[in-house]
Design a protein around this nucleic acid. Structure first.
Lengths: 211, 211
DNA sequence: TCACTGGATTTTGTATACAAATTAAATTAA
DNA sequence: TTAATTTAATTTGTATACAAAATCCAGTGA
């Protein structure tokens, strides 16, 4: 277990609920679990803390942040502001070959039958990211990456993604065609609707759970 | 030099140019400079890295990121998306007492004659933040804080803030009055203009420097 | 001259040990 | 019983020492 991979592993294990929401992460427990000393554990935790993938719980202890509907809504609203911006700035640089690569991704999602919900989610995000990366905006991309990571924790609720998967996939195709047709503003409107819809579905689901 | 303060100190020293743009930060040099072992230095660097206040330079070494006009423009564009959102979400919660506190801040800025450019900048940001905090959006506030920290590094160029200080301050008063008059949309339009203007001024200055 | 290899040197990564702080528990007093 | 306070336990923070890796540079060859 090398340093970078410990950070990745810990992140993944938080996503997958091995360290569930609300759990206090103490360094010794983690160091024993991953068979490393506390030093690399500390390094990983510092990074995760800065990304809000773990939060302070008291004066010195860290915990996996609870998942609240209010925060999910907030995260989606932020994405709703930033992703259209990313698409707008990417647009002039979208080449035919890049759009082709994006199409390949969509084909792969369709063809690969035995994809887990998590895998399909990852590929969907890769589709978005492929478009956004053309924007050449390092800070924006970093923020979007970070936001997506946080949102990902909420998507453990399979019911949501199952229901929404088809609609979402269709919208990806539409988005691609609009971009090919140089219809930026329409594409952005679609993207906004796409994000908003996903956000509303998630938030509704979360509120239903707590009620 | 305790742990939290080492992080703060390092951040401040980067802002102030003690570790200038492009400088490679090696752990030993830092640990000697701050009279601590490398462990707390590593912790601080991990956090700063996650916030992009230091960036990788090669495979393992970290450096203070260079200041480029393109990145400044990008950061201001992101703020232009997020700060209006914060104001919008804060608006319903803006109480008279809170607006009063904001006014106090503006008075303090006017009265305190011997303020350094850095201090005035800090107070100005506190004004913005005071309004935004009413939004009760932890993630949004965290992002804005982080973005502001990055932008702050660019504001070492006194010429800019000097020229813009008066206009900026006036706009703060206008913003406050519009909010008191419940004119949210006008206030947001002003805020957008406020941010855009500051961004353009900075970017123009940076481009002039490199030319 | 330039690219490249090999080894020396520097720098980062990690483990262990100990100090400081926090957290939890137990005791006491109201 | 409850709240406050002291004490014990756990947990985090830091220093030092060593291992692993990355960087630098001289030497070689084209």
């Amino acid at each position: 277990m090398t340093k970078a991979s410990l950070y990745q592993q810990l992140k993944q294990d938080i996503r997958q609920g091995i360290w569930p929401a609300g759990a206090v992460l103490n360094q010794q427990k983690l160091s024993e679990h991953y068979q490393v000393s506390r030093i690399p554990v500390r390094d990983a935790l510092q990074q995760l803390k800065a990304e809000a993938l773990v939060v302070m719980a008291g004066k010195a202890s860290l915990m996996v942040p609870p998942l609240t509907a209010a925060e999910a809504e907030e995260l989606y609203q932020i994405r709703l502001q930033l992703e259209p911006m990313a698409l707008r700035r990417a647009f002039p640089q979208l080449s035919f070959s890049l759009l082709g690569q994006a199409e390949d991704l969509l084909h792969r999602i369709e063809q690969d039958q035995h994809l887990s919900a998590a895998d399909r989610g990852a590929l969907n995000w890769q589709f978005h990211l492929m478009l956004y990366q053309a924007s050449q905006c390092p800070h924006l991309l970093r923020l979007l990456h970070s936001l997506h990571q946080q949102v990902e924790r909420y998507l453990g609720f399979q019911e949501i993604s199952m229901n929404y998967a088809d609609t979402s996939h269709q919208e990806h195709w539409q988005l691609l065609e609009l971009l090919r047709a140089q219809q930026l503003e329409t594409a952005i409107a679609l993207l906004q609707q796409h994000i908003q819809q996903a956000g509303e579905l998630l938030v509704a689901h979360l509120r239903a759970l707590t009620k």
